[in-house]
């Protein structure tokens, strides 16, 4: 007897659907927009414009020059997921060059500004290929206070675009900060007229835009405020002063007493004009202090 064969009932129904998993947009945030800034002036400008509306984060640490920051992977991941990355521009953010960051979140506040090129490195080429060199630009744009005002305008527009419901408030606040900077600009211009074309030596090549804007006659060394100049450095100074009889050294930070003494022995006095790229206190207060020191040096008591 043949084994009975059971009737196979068909009618299985399978559920189908797309295989896509739930994707989490990398920039999902609950709460405030995350805005990264690359130096202290921009951070303070952004805070003055938007107050506590933003999660404002620095791309630098409190130590060292923000221009030469080396963000670690954790910071870079934060940058990749940020809502806005405010750049100074003019090549300030060297650390950005080798990194993959979303272009859509970056706003370059120096767009349209006439930049100053600095000395280029040695050129090289491969066989018959085109020569190329790794050139550079000066980046302390904010020391031209009129340019700083333009940067604040761009910053205000970017923040207004980021938080449209607060756009008018941000643009109003941005205008107020611009006014403060233009007042600084006027003061510095007036002071520079009194300095005239006296030759000045600057300790660091970070005053290019300041010199251009205010017509100050400067040449740069590469000294650090926390390093006493050695014989080689002093010889370099002597060479520089040959044909450029500067009697003042402008320092980017408070120099050591020994450095000041060494210079005074050569007939060079010291005054501090701190660009405040990583200012610890209020940046506007710092610039007013710069103006006051320059006034004391060249107006009220210091002219030779």
């Amino acid at each position: 007897m043949r084994t009975c064969h059971l009737l196979i009932v068909l009618g299985c129904v399978f559920l189908f659907g797309c295989a896509g998993g739930a994707s989490v947009t990398p920039a999902d945030h609950a709460g405030k927009p995350v805005v990264y800034v690359v130096n202290e002036p921009l951070r303070q400008f952004a805070a003055a414009i938007a107050g506590t509306d933003l999660d404002l984060r620095p791309s630098y640490t409190k130590q060292g020059d923000p221009a030469f920051a080396e963000p670690d992977d954790a910071l870079l991941q934060g940058l990749q997921q940020a809502d806005l990355l405010v750049l100074n521009g003019a090549g300030y953010e060297k650390w950005r060059e080798g990194l993959s960051l979303p272009a859509s979140i970056q706003v370059n506040t120096s767009v349209g500004y006439e930049l100053i090129a600095t000395e280029a490195s040695t050129a090289h080429r491969h066989g018959a290929g085109a020569a190329h060199q790794h050139g550079d630009t000066a980046f302390t744009t904010w020391m031209d206070y009129r340019q700083a005002a333009a940067q604040v305008r761009m910053l205000g527009e970017a923040l207004a675009g980021l938080v449209p419901e607060r756009a008018s408030a941000y643009l109003q606040a941005s205008a107020e900060v611009q006014t403060q900077l233009l007042e600084l600009d006027a003061e510095m211009a007036a002071l520079a007229q009194q300095i005239g074309d006296r030759p000045l030596i600057v300790s660091h090549p970070v005053y290019q835009y300041w010199a251009r804007r205010y017509g100050v006659n400067v040449r740069a060394l590469h000294w650090e405020p926390d390093v006493v100049p050695d014989a080689a450095a002093l010889a370099e100074l002597a060479t520089l002063r040959d044909g450029f009889p500067a009697e003042w050294m402008i320092w980017e930070g408070e120099p050591l007493a020994a450095s000041v003494a060494a210079l005074e022995q050569l007939g060079v006095r010291s005054v501090v004009v701190d660009p405040g790229g990583n200012a610890e206190g209020d940046w506007f207060r710092l610039q007013h202090d710069n103006l006051e020191r320059l006034r004391q040096a060249f107006v009220s008591g210091g002219l030779p």
């Binding site: 998993g21 739930a22 994707s23 989490v24 947009t25 990398p26 920039a27 992977d73 870079l76 991941q77 990749q80 080798g98 990194l99 993959s100 960051l101 979303p102 272009a103 859509s104």
Partner: peptide, 24 residues
Amino acid sequence: TNPDYLRQRGLGRASGRWFMRPGE
């Protein structure tokens, strides 16, 4: 491409992180 692609496509991660540098 660049990380904007990942953001605009809404691509999520199962493990690791996004590429941060050339070579990754």
